[in-house]
Simulated scan of single mutants.
Amino acid sequence: MLMEDTNELLSGERIYPISFNEAAIDHKERYQLALNYISRDDNILDCATGAGYGAYYLAVNSNCNSVVGIDINEHAINWANENFKTQKNIYLKTDLLEDFSGSLPNNDYDLVTCFETIEHLKDDYGFLKRLSGCMKPGGILIISSPNEEVIPCLANPFYPGGKNPYHHRHYAPSELKNLLNDCGFSIIEAYTQCPDKIVKGENGFVIIYVCKYNNMDHKYSMNTLEQSIEKLSVIQMNRHYQFLNNSLSNSIDFTLINKRIDEILVSNYAFMEVYELIEGSKINLAYQALDQIDEKVCPEKNFLKGLIYQTSGDLYKAIESYTILLSEENRINPIIYSVAKEQFHKIIEMLPK
C-alpha cells in the first residue's frame, strides 16, 4: 500500500472490511437507503466505491442488472475485486476529476450513488456535470456530504486543528441544493443522519439528497410527522455531542428526558412503517407491526387500527378505533385527527340505514 493510502486509512477516510457488516454504521445506512430506489434491471454507478462493500451490497440485495464501482485508489479497487465481486459487479480505477465516461461500460445509468465524495473534489460543479452525462434522463442520483451547519469544514471537532485534510469544503443544505439544481438535478427527497440513523430532513451531521436528472417538475416536502421525527432526532444528537450542546444548561439531568425521546422516536418510526404497510395492502404485516407502537406515547395508533379495519372491511371495529382517537383531540396530530374524522364520517355513510 502507498504511504498516502496508509495515511488515509489511519484518518478514517478509507475502510477495508471483508464483509458489509464490518463497515461503519453510517456507511451501511446510506447503501440500505439506496435499495429503496432500485428497479428491476437497473444499471447502477457507485462513485468513489472504495473497498466495494456498498456496490456489492446493492448487487446482491436487489434485482438490478449491474453495479459499476469506480475509484481512483488502485488498492481499493483490488480489494473490491478480491472481496466483493459478483457477476453483477464491475470495479474500475477512475479519476473523478477527469472525463471518466469513456472508461465506463455504458453511459445511461438508471441510478448513481455518490456518498461522502463531493466534498473531496475541488471542481464539484464539473464533476456533477460529467456525472449527469452518464445518466439517463430522469435517472436518480443519491448524494451525501457533511453538513457545514453542523460540522464546519474549518472547525471540524473530529480532527486535530479542526480541518480534515482530505476535504475541500462542506455544504450547507442550501449550497448543495443550489449546486445540484445548477447541474440539472431536481431534489425529490431529503434525508439526514443524526448521527448514524437516517431520517427525513436536512439538519443532521450528513445531508443526503435523492435527485432526478433532467426532470425539474419534482419538488420534495416533509409532512408534519416527518418534521417532528427530525426535530426529536436532532435534539437527541445534540445531547450526545457536547460541541453541539452550548445552549443547554449542564445543571439539568437529561437522562430521563433522553429516554423519553427514544421512546417517542421508536413509536413514530413504527407508525411510519405500519402506515407504509397499509398503503401497500400488506394488512397482515401491518397488524403484526402494530405491536411495536406504544399507545401511551403514540395515541395515533388508533388511527392505524382504524385504517386496518377499514381496509379489511370490518367497519364497526374501524368506527370504534376512530372514536377512541377522536376523543383525544388535544393529544393527536391535527392532520391525522382531520383525516380520521373524515374517514369516520365516510364509514357512517356506508353503513346500512
Rank of each mutant, 00 (worst) to 15 (best):
M3E: 15
D5K: 06
L9R: 13
L10H: 14
L10E: 15
I15F: 11
P17I: 04
F20L: 07
F20P: 09
A24T: 06
A24D: 11
I25P: 03
Y37H: 10
I38Y: 12
S39W: 00
S39A: 05
D41W: 00
D42G: 03
L45P: 06
D46Y: 04
C47A: 13
A48D: 10
G50W: 10
A51M: 04
G54Y: 07
W79D: 05
N81H: 03
Q87A: 11
D99S: 07
N106P: 02
L111K: 05
T113A: 00
R130Y: 08
L141Q: 10
L141C: 09
I143M: 12
N147E: 09
L154T: 14
P157T: 14
Y159K: 11
P160D: 05
K163M: 11
N164V: 03
P165D: 12
R169S: 08
H170Y: 15
H170T: 12
E175T: 06
N181Q: 06
G184C: 00
Y191D: 08
T192P: 01
Q193M: 15
Q193K: 09
P195N: 13
I208G: 10
K212W: 00
K212H: 12
K212C: 07
Y220K: 00
M222V: 01
Q227A: 08
K231D: 12
Q242V: 11
F243H: 15
F243K: 05
F243E: 11
S249W: 03
N250T: 15
I252A: 00
F254T: 09
L265W: 10
N268Q: 14
Y269R: 15
L277T: 01
Q292M: 02
C298Q: 12
P299R: 10
F303P: 00
G306Q: 08
S312P: 01
D314F: 10
N333Y: 05
V339W: 12
Q343D: 13
I347V: 10
M350Q: 04
P352I: 10
